[in-house]
């Protein structure tokens, strides 16, 4: 702790804000890393089979991209080829707050933006020709 004070006169606490929430339809699934994988997979399957949706959208951000892809592929594999995938990638802007922890309280808090990748996979039954 002493060392860090020498390096940087003002200490900051990093506080990440939540990513922007986008309006959600019934058939949107936002994948996260906290919920159990099987539960998320089951939720998607339920939407496709029981929910009567012809297509669902699986969204993953950052670390969850991997899991989103996994879910989509699992869905496809378990449907014996009936489902098709269409993946899109995008960049999401995230906001971090930096709060100063200096005793003099003169430093301004800072805000910085950074980008993170996101994936949006459309899982759908193809229209019969």
């Amino acid at each position: 702790m002493l060392r860090s004070v020498e390096m940087d006169p003002v200490e900051y606490t990093l506080r990440k804000r939540l990513p922007r929430k986008l309006p959600k339809r019934r058939n949107d699934v936002y994948v996260n890393m906290k919920t159990d994988f099987r539960a998320q997979l089951a939720r998607c399957q339920k939407l496709l089979e029981g929910g009567g949706h012809r297509e669902i959208c699986v969204h993953g951000l950052g670390l969850a991209i991997n899991r989103a892809i996994n879910i989509a592929l699992q869905l496809q594999a378990s449907s014996q080829g009936a489902l098709q995938l269409a993946a899109n990638t995008s960049t999401v802007e995230l906001v971090d707050d930096l709060e100063p922890e200096d005793p003099d309280e003169a430093a301004e808090p800072m805000t910085r933006t950074r980008n993170n990748s996101a994936i949006h996979i459309k899982v759908f039954y193809p229209e019969p020709q």
């Binding site: 804000r17 939540l18 906001v95 707050d97």
Partner: peptide, 9 residues
Amino acid sequence: LYSTGEVPA
């Protein structure tokens, strides 16, 4: 805005 939490605290 989409959520109240988006603005600085």
